[in-house]
Write a protein that binds this DNA or RNA. Structure first.
Lengths: 205, 205
DNA sequence: GAATAAAACGAACGATCGTTCGAAACAAGT
DNA sequence: ACTTGTTTCGAACGATCGTTCGTTTTATTC
């Protein structure tokens, strides 16, 4: 219901965002489907029915959770490098920013979108659509940064923005998974070296 | 309700491996946690209790499912290239074999281990341990193939087996995710080009 | 402070979850 | 045909799931 999405009082919007703060953390560990309304209600100190009313359905809660996670991601990874000069500096900044975000525990269970995008990649529906859109945005941002680095003459013309964006995204998700699965922060060092190896071969002399 | 007998068309004796065949497919779509005994029983034509007796617990079923998926993976990806000559040919063969496996629909919901390793990477327990071991094996195989390619003089000495194995694994999982999420098989072409770009820069002249 | 609107509640719903148990159905050996 | 052991079964358990409903508590407005 749209009445649940438009806050009508101060208190309502506060609790809503407080709920989502916890929802994002729980979902990063147990998945968006494993996120249960009962557990979330207990974790936030609300009643099941009271919490439920904010979102109208579990799907509504999931969609709102994706939205909230997106805001966290943008604040942690993208915003800090908006000011960097176009081209290679901003691209390198983006990658470094992500490498700092990885082990930062922004999400309790590791990168929310790495988890959600794998969990829903084979289940049609609005949640998958929203996750896909978020991934497209992030991938598009990487692609754009590469394209600008080429336009600025920082990277050679052979640098393919689509290919490089795919590689960077895959390496980032791979580092997140290795870190989570093996409890080994060196995964991010591997990712950093992979980024560097790929870029160094393409920088203009 | 009248007790008139429905003609029991009992399917042929369902073996444990027949159950697991279906379990692997269901889990690749809905996850190992989303795999439910009731749904699996219905999909195989068995009763919930009858199926349950084979595994003793849901965790037992999950562990057996991981095992069965591992056998499918080995048969689809690893076995076909065992005969190739050591070094670069076998490494390239492994990567090509994986690229063929990706869109092969061996698993209904895409690569089982890409999904399971992300689903369980933050949830301690025997299932995570088993998945981690499987991923270590696959990653170790890639590492070994790179090391042999260096030893045979096919790749330059700077080629770092751990780093390259990490990259190949990440790119493979990334291609699987992109394929599943965007329904676009070109993801595997991107992965192929990424593999080639990385290897071509390291082959000995 | 009364009137009104929003938010949170407790209780219950039917469905499904994993699991247990004792009885049938079945296979094989003697 | 009788016994033994293995599968499979139906029925039920308590727990939890998402969801609904009517009521009570809280906040905002006049």
């Amino acid at each position: 219901m749209d009445t649940a999405e438009i806050p009508k009082s101060r208190k309502g919007s506060l609790t809503r965002s407080a709920i989502l703060e916890e929802a994002v953390q729980l979902a990063s560990v147990h998945g968006l489907e494993g996120l249960s309304i009962g557990q979330l209600a207990e974790a936030t100190g609300l009643s099941k029915a009271g919490l439920f009313a904010h979102f109208g359905s579990k799907e509504g809660l999931q969609l709102a959770t994706v939205e909230a996670a997106g805001a966290l991601f943008v604040a942690a990874v993208i915003d800090p490098v908006k000011h960097l000069p176009k081209g290679l500096p901003r691209l390198r900044g983006l990658l470094e920013s992500w490498l700092a975000y990885g082990p930062s525990r922004t999400f309790r269970g590791g990168c929310f979108f790495a988890a959600a995008s794998t969990e829903f990649d084979g289940r049609p529906g609005p949640v998958r659509d929203r996750v896909r859109e978020a991934m497209k945005q992030w991938s598009g941002l990487l692609k754009h940064a590469v394209r600008e680095a080429v336009a600025e003459g920082h990277l050679r013309d052979e640098a393919d923005p689509s290919l490089l964006a795919f590689e960077f995204l895959a390496l980032a998700m791979g580092a997140n998974n290795a870190y989570q699965l093996h409890d080994d922060p060196r995964a991010f060092d591997l990712a950093r070296r992979a980024f560097a190896a790929r870029l160094d071969a393409l920088v203009t002399p």
